Computed example of a mutant assay.
Amino acid sequence: MRRRAALAVTGAVVLAWGEWLNWRWSRSLVTGHGGTSEAVVVLGYRNPQATANFVNRWRVRAGLRSVAAGGAQDTRVIFSGGAVGSHAAEAQLMADYARSVLGFCGTLLLEDKSRTTWENVTNVIPLLEDADRIKIVSQPAHALKARAYVRRQRPDLAERLVRADDYRPVEWVIGKPLLALYGLWTLRGLKPEERMASSCSRQLV
C-alpha cells in the first residue's frame, strides 16, 4: 500500500513538473502588445507521410485557435516548414489540413523552404514584419526557441511577440514530462535571460 501511494505521489509530481515547465515556457519572451493586425506562425514538424501527421495536425489546430483568441481585425496564418521528412513541404501539408479538413477560410501564407528553426524564423520575417502582433505556435519549448531567434535576428520585432494558444492545462498531460525533458535539451543553447517569463506577462491576452 505504501509503495503504491509513493508511486502515485511520484507520478503526480512528475506530471505537475511537466505541466509547470510547459506553462512557464509558453509565457516566456512575450508581451502584451496591442494592435489591429497579427501574424500567427505555425512551425512544422518532420512529416514523412503524404498527409499531415499527428503533431502537425495538433499544431494547425493550435494555430487556428490562436487566431480566434486574438480578436485582431487583420490576421494572417503562416505555415512554415520545408520538405524535411518527405517530398512534400511541411507547410503545404499543414495548409492542406487547415483548408480541407478544418475549413479555414482566412488569409494563409506558406514558407516552404526552411529545414531548421533558425531558418523558419529567417524566412518568415519578410511575411510578418509589418504585423502589430506576432504569435509563434508549436510545442511550448520549440515556440520559445523560435521567439528567442526572433529576438536575435530582429530585436525590433521582440516587443510584438505575444502568447499563442499553444498551451492549455492538462492538454498532452501524460506527454508533458517527456516534452519538458526534450525541451530542456533543445533549449540548452539559450541564454538564461531568454528562458525567463516576460515582465509584461500580466498584460497577456
Score class of each variant (00 low, 15 high):
Leu29Asp: 14
Arg59Met: 07
Asp96Ala: 05
Ala148Gln: 01
Val84Gly: 03
Leu178Trp: 13
Ile134Phe: 14
Arg163Asn: 14
Met1Arg: 14
Ser100Arg: 11
Leu161Phe: 04
Ala141Pro: 07
Lys176Glu: 07
Asp166His: 03
Arg147Glu: 04
Arg133Trp: 15
Glu159Cys: 13
Leu7Thr: 07
Leu187Trp: 00
Ala146Val: 01
Trp20Lys: 08
Glu119Pro: 09
Ser114Gly: 04
Ser86Gly: 00
Val40Asp: 01
Glu193Asn: 08
Val42Arg: 01
Asp112Ala: 08
Val60Phe: 11
Lys145Phe: 13
Leu43Met: 06
Pro192Val: 06
Arg151Phe: 15
Gln139Asn: 10
Trp25Arg: 05
Ala95Ile: 04
Ala88Met: 13
Leu144Pro: 06
Gly82Thr: 05
Gly18Pro: 03
Ala89Gln: 04
Pro155Asp: 03
Ser86Thr: 03
Pro140Ser: 00
His33Thr: 15
Gly32Tyr: 07
Asn22Thr: 09
Val124Met: 07
Leu181Gln: 06
Gly11His: 06
Ala8Gly: 06
Ala83Ile: 06
Tyr45Val: 05
Glu129Gln: 13
Ala91Lys: 04
Val124Tyr: 08
Ala88Lys: 12
Gln92Asn: 15
Glu111Tyr: 11
Asp166Thr: 02
Gly63Thr: 00
Ser201Gly: 12
Leu109Asp: 13
Thr31Met: 04
Ala88Pro: 13
Val101Arg: 08
Arg160Glu: 07
Val162Glu: 06
Ala16Arg: 06
Ile78Pro: 05
Val84Tyr: 06
Arg160Asp: 04
Val150Gln: 03
Gly183Glu: 02
Ala148His: 01
Val30Cys: 02
Gly71Asp: 00
Gln73Ser: 11
Ile125Asn: 00
Leu181Ser: 06
Lys191Phe: 11
